[in-house]
Design a protein around this nucleic acid. Structure first.
Length: 269
DNA sequence: TCCTTATGTACAA
DNA sequence: TGTACCTAAGGAC
């Protein structure tokens, strides 16, 4: 589930299991073999996340930049590690833990300069303490692009993906097609504050839950839900299903090559 | 066993 | 706007 909360959770998990140790690094799949040879037996000194980008620091000098993309996954666990399969791009193992990285868009050794360039092209991340929501709003308020597209633009705000995008707009009853310039300061404030809270919960629980207690099926006197992606949500992947609040049909449409979900009744212009 | 789909991004035209 | 890339799960046969 690679939205920002997943990456921040991974930064914590890698740190918890490997920081201060010198893991073995291997690349059974082969594409990271040279770098793995350089890193093996080097101390993992720090981890960091910005949006959907994960950074692992080895021997205080070598940064590994990981981006999971759409398919990437990390399997973490206690030793002994299972036999590595040939899709594992990077395996770390120490005395107690293993971490298998599969299917990332990016897994590369980078310089501090290259790392800084990545930070520079990312917008503020609701999960980072250094984030300034005003920077994001400055871009939103002067854009004719829809708020749905802006929330997915990592230059505007980092870490929000298709699920948080759909859910936060529903929670604030905002039509996804509204232009950014029509989002008021108080609306942006509410969106940002909500994302900070929702995404922190996402890190804690390692899943996305967005449904308020008063809107659960039990509270609404409706049959239990069938959401199949691990969390409780209002609209994401619920096309043609009844809205939890108004019981109207959730709609879906293509927006910038991604699936958008919203309730046309609850989310008015 | 094949086909579709997915919580993402970069690059070409 | 379209296409390529990385993987695995689920459903249709």
């Amino acid at each position: 589930m690679p939205e920002g909360h997943t990456i921040h959770r991974l930064a914590l998990d890698y740190a918890h299991r490997f920081q201060g140790t010198a893991p073995q690094a291997t690349s059974p799949q082969g594409k990271f073999s040279d770098a793995a040879d350089l890193l093996t037996d080097a101390e993992l000194t720090r981890t960091e996340a910005h949006g959907k980008h994960l950074f692992l620091l080895f021997r205080d000098t070598d940064w590994v930049h990981i981006h999971l993309g759409l398919f990437g996954k990390v399997a973490l666990g206690d030793t002994p590690a299972p036999p590595p399969t040939d899709t594992v791009r990077l395996r770390l193992t120490n005395e107690t833990s293993y971490a298998d990285l599969r299917g990332p868009t990016t897994c590369a050794l980078i310089t501090p300069t290259e790392k800084q360039a990545i930070h520079d092209r990312l917008g503020p991340d609701p999960l980072r303490t250094d984030a300034d929501p005003a920077t994001a709003y400055a871009r939103v308020r002067r854009s004719r692009t829809t708020i749905a597209a802006l929330l997915m633009d990592q230059k505007v705000i980092a870490g929000v993906g298709n699920v948080y995008r759909a859910e936060v707009l529903f929670r604030h009853r905002i039509d996804p097609y509204r232009p950014g310039r029509d989002i008021t300061p108080s609306e942006w404030d509410a969106i940002w504050t909500d994302l900070v809270e929702l995404m922190h919960e996402g890190v804690r629980d390692n899943r996305i839950d967005t449904v308020r207690p008063e809107h659960t099926p039990e509270a609404m006197g409706r049959p239990p839900r069938v959401d199949d992606h691990g969390g409780e949500v209002y609209v994401y992947r619920r096309a043609a299903m009844p809205c939890h609040i108004c019981a109207g049909e959730i709609r879906t449409a293509d927006l910038a090559a991604r699936n958008l979900f919203w309730c046309p009744t609850c989310q008015r212009r």
